[in-house]
Every structure is written in C-alpha cells, then in structure tokens.
Write a protein that binds this DNA or RNA. Structure first.
Lengths: 207, 207
DNA sequence: GTTCTAGGCGAACGCTCGTTCGAATCAACG
DNA sequence: CGTTGATTCGAACGAGCGTTCGCCTAGAAC
C-alpha cells in the first residue's frame, strides 16, 4: 500500500506535521510553519489535505489504528493473562518509543479534534480500552480477585504509559525494555500481587 | 492575605480563566472569550493582568506552590516511608480532585509557557519531584532494594496521578479516596512488594 | 500538435488575535 | 467644589490566521 507518488508525499507531509505539532503544539503551529518546514508552498499543502483539522485527524487515526492492529497480531498467540498484559504494555510502549512525535500528538491533542473526526478516533480509543479491560478481567480470573476497581486500574495504567511523552527520551539511557518491564511489574505487582522481583531486570546506565 | 478588593477580583478572574482554559485549552481561548465569561471588558482584563501569558503563569504557579506547601505541612509529622508515600499521593490527588480546572491547566499546558515564567514553574516542579524521589529512597532503605529504577518509577507514578485530568470526574461514582488508595497500593505493591490486599478498600458504586 | 490532467504556487480574502490608548466614571479627600 | 487615584471601557492597531482562487508548468495521451 501507499505506493503512488501522491501517497509517498502525503506520508512525508504527515511525518513533518507530526514532528512540528509535537514540538510546538497543534494550535500554535500555523499552516505557514508547516509549509516552510516541509518545503511546500502554503497553498500546495491543500492539494494533499483538505484542512488543518484533517491533517491532525490523519496523524491520530493512522497511528492509533497501527497500534491497535499490531496489538491484535501480538496478542494472537499469547494466552496466559499476565503475559497478555505484558504484551499489551510492550506493544504500547514500543510503538510509543519509535513514534514519539505521532504518539505525543495523539496523547496531547486528543481534545483538539471535534465533530466527526473526534468521533472516529474515539471509536478506536474505545476498542483499544476494551481490549485492556478484558485482559484485566482474565487476570482476575486466573490470579484471584483484584485489589482495585477494574476501570480505575485501567485508566491508571494508561496514565503510566501515556504520560511518558512528557519526559521520555528514546535516545537517552533508559531503554524501552526497562520502561516496559517497569510498567508491567508495577501494575501486576499492585493489581493481583504477582511477585515482581524474581526475573532479571535491565538496568539504566544513569538516572 | 488576599483581602483587598483588587485581590478578590484578581482571584475571581484567575478562577474563571482556569475554568475556560481547562475547557477550551489555553491557545484556543481568546482574551475576548475570557472577558465575555468573566463579565469584564476586554481592555479591563489588562488592569489586573499584564498579558495572557501572565494569566497562565499565575494559575500554574499559585496552584503548584499551594500543592507543595500543603504537602510539606502534611509530611511534617509522618515518618514511616510507606506512609509518607501515601501522604504524597493523597495530597496530590486531593488537591487535584478539588481543583480540577487549575490542575488540568497545570498538567496540560506545561509547554504553553516560556521564558522566565516557564523557568519559575520548573523550579517548583524540580523541588516537588525531589521530595518524591527522596521518599522513594527512604522506601528502599526500609523495605529493601526496589525492583525498578528510581527515576523511572518516579515519572511513572506522576503519570498515574497526572493523567487523571483526562478521565476523572469528581462528581462521579469514584471517590478520591478510592483513587488515592488505588494509586498508592499499585505503586507500593510493585515498587517494593508491599502487600496490597490486607486493608479494606472503598468500593466504587459503579464503573 | 493539441488536449488533458496532476501538481504546484503567489496573492489575496475575511477574520480573529493580543495589546494599547485616551477618555469616562466615581468615590474619597482637601 | 476641585482634585486625585483607582477602575473600567470602546475603539482601534498591526499582525497573523486558515483557506481559496486563478494561473502556471510539464509530461502523458491521443
């Protein structure tokens, strides 16, 4: 897919837009900023995209759907609930770390969309949340009743994962494996009391 | 403090501004919006505030310093590390739940400030983070080595707490006590393996 | 060689933005 | 009464915004 010259240029534009939206914020970024940094004229942008809103929508929906699609692939051959939880966290943070700009735009500019665009992104969000809540239900089934309200636990876990756009540097000393294991262990240890100190843990070379 | 008529009106303005910034976002809100909803003329706003930026700064700095000040009061007579961690979480979420608009503006518009204003808010942020990291160090001292990198754990915990502005409804079924206990237990269970199922837990009446 | 079309651009439109400025109001005080 | 100082406002300024329009180019199709 995405073979034609038109598609290639649109994808490049979306990548530039995601980078700039992540740096300056969606509302602060003007179409003129975007034109300058992507090497297209101001009016030329509108050949690929019908509005600034659509630009934001395309960034959010394409990446969110990519996360969800990869998640389904990865979960396909994992059965054990705790392993499924870890797979969910791994997939989320892995995609996050390798698409920081896009995921920051997805996390931070959730309320910048409206109308039909917002409704469609929210549909994906509901699906995605549902997958996690089902895993939590399975966890309770196999490891005994949870110590927390399931819905609250779900949102707290999303908080652990989505907040990283405010501080995480993929080029820094903390690898995504450490991050992912930390979140999984923190959650599993607190949610169903799974032991968290058994396996070896990758170490950050600095704090 | 804040006795003069001038101070009273400024405080009311800040409260209105926080509410509107939380609803519409800082950059999307115009001074005209603010004037309309606070019952002052457009130019009248500038008698109380020198710029839109200063408005945001005042909201962020005053509330952040209030959180930090209350925290120090509360920590003053708590010694046991796990109890200090719980005090930190309680204080943070308690203030959050009773000042949702202000705290959403503080969390979500962190990058909307620049220059000297940003530097001053970041000073407070550094102090606040330092308090939490010291508590984590104490925890490791009394409950054995942690299962996670301390700095990573700190930021993950902030993620659990700060993300709630995206979903928490203080008027809904989930009380702030449940929220606070959930976060504390999740963290303590995963960080130093403290048992999490012993005490009674408030229940949400619905999910 | 003419026609067609995808791709691209300069210039402008109508609008909103944050901020300023000078004047009006009004209570307090000499 | 006249003056002062605090408070408020209408009107305007210059700048920037998202978007549109008509025109240009170049190569493929016939």
């Amino acid at each position: 897919m995405d073979k034609t010259a038109h598609d290639v240029k649109l994808n490049a534009l979306l990548a530039d837009a995601a980078r700039i939206f992540a740096e300056r914020g969606y509302h602060r970024t003007s179409m003129r900023d975007l034109a300058r940094e992507s090497g297209v004229s101001l009016s030329g942008l509108y050949y690929y995209v019908s509005s600034k809103d659509e630009l934001l929508f395309l960034i959010q929906s394409r990446n969110f759907e990519a996360v969800l699609s990869r998640l389904r692939d990865q979960l396909a051959d994992v059965r054990e609930p705790a392993a499924r939880l870890q797979t969910f966290v791994d997939n989320h943070l892995d995609y996050f770390a390798s698409h920081m700009s896009e995921m920051k735009v997805l996390s931070h500019e959730a309320e910048s969309l409206g109308g039909e665009y917002l409704a469609r992104v929210n549909d994906t969000k509901r699906e995605y949340t549902r997958v996690l809540m089902d895993i939590l239900a399975d966890l309770e089934g196999s490891h005994g009743p949870a110590h927390l309200n399931r819905r609250v636990a779900t949102y707290i876990l999303f908080g652990m994962m989505n907040w990283i756009y405010t501080w995480y540097d993929p080029m820094g000393d903390v690898g995504v494996e450490l991050l992912s294991q930390s979140v999984s262990r923190l959650f599993l240890g607190g949610y169903v009391g799974l032991p968290v100190g058994a396996q070896q843990m990758p170490r950050a070379t600095a704090g």
